[in-house]
Design a protein around this nucleic acid. Structure first.
Lengths: 239, 239
DNA sequence: GTCTATACAACGATAGAC
DNA sequence: GTCTATCGTTGTATAGAC
């Protein structure tokens, strides 16, 4: 809340606040929020536990500040890329560009550090699973607008698909993205080394391809009419 | 490790072990593993904290027992449904049946209680995000075989798609599934009420549709050849 | 064999010294 | 502005009563 002057503060250790913030981000995005203690953070930053409380009031406050840092730049980048994507002429290419505009910042952007975007997205993935209340509020405030804009853009490219289906499919995209950042080694393992789950480039390309295809899929009723084998038949097959 | 006799034990309170197990499953799948204390579990089960330690040795042991309970039935059901799906004649229907066989038990199976499968899958989702070590070991032992079988089955239906791509897309499916169970209200919100994220039926149908389409998508190189607008063009569009 | 009472370390947070 | 000392509370595990 209280804004600090831009001048370097006459402190014992310079940028202790920054050191704590960096340590917290690193630890939270690796082990989750609940598994990391304020003491862990202080230790990693070379600070005193009390100093964490001084700077951020509570543990939740620390998390809030990390989100504040990243949300702005990431959503800005997304908006820029989305605007550019909407100008793509070829319809198929435009759709792909829109999806890419959504995915790319999650992997690469982030305020300053290399891989900052990836780390922050990983944190978001863990936080959504842990169901943190602070984060829920931030998401409803900050991310829903962006998500809406993307769904609208996709809907423009695919007007014959009901918006509801696109919401579902966009939701699946985010889940897939999160899961890939949280458990990349599973991809490497199941592919027996022929894919590298930690390779952002590979992940992005596969994610974009899969998502574009899923977005273009016919809506539900059309497929139900086509199907020759009913669900009941399959479920009864063995049991 | 030590197997207990099948006889009902002559205990003061019957099924206290079961009560603790049920309470733990409920709490873990709602708030995550790290956020829930042994005291919380004991309180919810009407037991003494020490009694939890007696039955399950450690908090990890409790988690392990919950997994042991569910993994067997769920993977059995999956195998049954997969075997049935493989016998479907129509190729398109078969692929869909295979995906359905993977998704269905995650939502509905589970040892006994209604919604047991959903609750356990939700737990798995949270645990994978929290990066729990106990769970990582169980997954590598129990789930990878099943995942492999499904990828193989899908590969048989889509022999022209490289297995690596199918691994990625199957991974995305699991991520989407997890995320839907963890944050269903997001779907309801973004769709402005026209979809219900908590409705397992809707979720399954949308998930199956989207996944089948993504699995059928052309592999990477083919699309790269088709594309008219390069990635660089898009990224440079605004910035 | 099952549960109660209790020990002990670590947690988040505060007040006040520096 | 930062750190020390410390509060009340919680998580985990044990030892012994029933």
């Amino acid at each position: 809340m209280v804004r600090k002057p831009a001048k370097v503060p006459s402190t014992r250790r310079p940028n202790m606040r920054e050191a704590i913030l960096a340590a917290a981000e690193e630890l939270f995005s690796t082990y989750g929020f609940n598994a990391v203690s304020v003491r862990d953070i202080a230790r990693a930053a070379g600070a005193n536990p009390g100093s964490v409380t001084y700077h951020f009031k509570t543990k939740d406050g620390l998390l809030l500040e990390i989100y504040r840092r990243h949300c702005g730049p990431m959503n800005l980048r997304r908006s820029e890329l989305l605007a550019a994507a909407r100008r793509v002429r070829d319809l198929q290419d435009r759709l792909e560009a829109i999806v890419r505009a959504y995915v790319l910042p999650a992997f690469t952007s982030g305020s300053d550090l290399a891989g900052g975007g990836t780390r922050f997205t990983r944190l978001r993935a863990i936080m959504s699973a842990e169901g943190n209340e602070v984060v829920k509020r931030i998401i409803a405030q900050t991310f829903d607008d962006t998500s809406d804009a993307f769904i609208d853009a996709i809907h423009e490219s695919l007007p014959h698909i009901p918006r509801t289906d696109l919401v579902w499919r966009g939701h699946f995209l985010l889940g897939a993205l999160y899961y890939t950042l949280v458990t990349p080694e599973r991809v490497s393992r199941l592919s027996r080394g022929s894919a590298d789950g930690t390779d952002a480039g590979q992940a992005i390309e596969e994610l974009v391809r899969a998502t574009v295809a899923s977005l273009q899929a016919a809506p539900l009723d059309q497929t139900l009419a086509r199907r020759k084998t009913t669900i009941a038949e399959i479920a009864q097959g063995e049991r």
